[in-house]
Design a binder for these strands. Structure first.
Lengths: 162, 162
DNA sequence: GTCCCTATACTCGGATAGCAAGTGTCCGAGTATAGGCGG
DNA sequence: CCGCCTATACTCGGACACTTGCTATCCGAGTATAGGGAC
């Protein structure tokens, strides 16, 4: 079980975009440079975030990506589902109905116990990710960084912003 | 993000083995037949469960697999970790320390917020799976089955047990 | 008749191919800008 | 000098190779049994 690496990039990009001045956008190339990620591959994930209505793409010069909504309304779960897909990691193949002792699924009154436990665990996982917003992450990143880190960030920030 | 299909098979096999008479074992071939699973591939996962100390392998004729411990002490999480591995699905690549604004990890006072949220969510997921035991699953399966399903199961059961 | 030995058949165990999904990359479509030209 | 037009350069967007890890399979090592032979 492995979560796509693009989720991490997407989340970091969203946090970075959340501190941009209103209306400003950052192209995929800059975002990739900031995170040392392959440009084209990161762009692929940014497109997914754009399709999901999390980011907004601005074409042409001075274009790029920006948040489509306020950072307080974008949850980490949305980013995960936009990039990794919303399908749960466990897919019940309904083993109860197969084999020499199998009976049609309609004969069971309750959901398969294994399936149920997996769904519940998955729901807890998603529920927690739903409580974390991009704005929370931005605040946490700012308060957890050393002065030197903040300074380097501001320098880079003012350099890329025209 | 996809959980190995072997997890489902392993869990169902453990439940099935939990209702065996004490000391009896069921070979991989029977377990595969019961779940309509590829024999050799299922055997691979049973070996993993055996290595993890969940199942016990009995070689030779009349051998097979049986639970190595009481079903009340085997959690669903153990089965998942034995087959799928215990590594968390999200692997932080420490993006904070990279790129033009990166500083050494030692300069950060707190864990990366994204990483933290993912770890917490993963812990909730694992914690829930830890509360479900094979014994619980067996009880649930028995109480949720129709009389016909129980009858077919008992028939098959008495047939394969010498 | 009883005990022992051997051959057998059955079991698990690890090492070996095939395939799907994630990873990484490329080139084409569209647009705001900058410069040049005409009025 | 001002406005318009065109060419440009920059952006995103979807279609195309490659690698890792899950899926599936095979053959070899080890053991309890069943049968046969000797005593």
């Amino acid at each position: 079980m492995k979560l796509s690496e693009g989720v991490e990039w997407g989340a970091h990009c969203a946090v970075l975009l959340s501190v941009l001045p209103s209306g400003a956008a950052l192209p995929a190339g800059r975002l990739a440079e900031y995170h040392e990620a392959p440009v084209a591959y990161l762009a692929k994930h940014l497109q997914a975030l754009s399709r999901a209505g999390i980011l907004e793409a601005v074409p042409g010069p001075h274009g790029g990506y920006r948040l489509a909504r306020p950072a307080t309304g974008i949850t980490l779960l949305e980013i995960v589902e936009a990039i990794d897909g919303a399908r749960p990691p466990f897919r019940c193949t309904d083993l109860r109905s197969r084999g020499p002792a199998g009976v049609p699924a309609s004969q069971f009154r309750t959901m398969c116990g294994i399936h149920r436990a997996m769904v519940e665990a998955d729901e807890l996982w998603r529920e927690h990710l739903r409580t974390v917003t991009v704005a929370d992450l931005a605040v946490g990143a700012a308060s957890g960084s050393s002065p030197e880190a903040v300074e380097k960030f501001v320098n880079w920030f003012q350099e890329v912003l025209p």
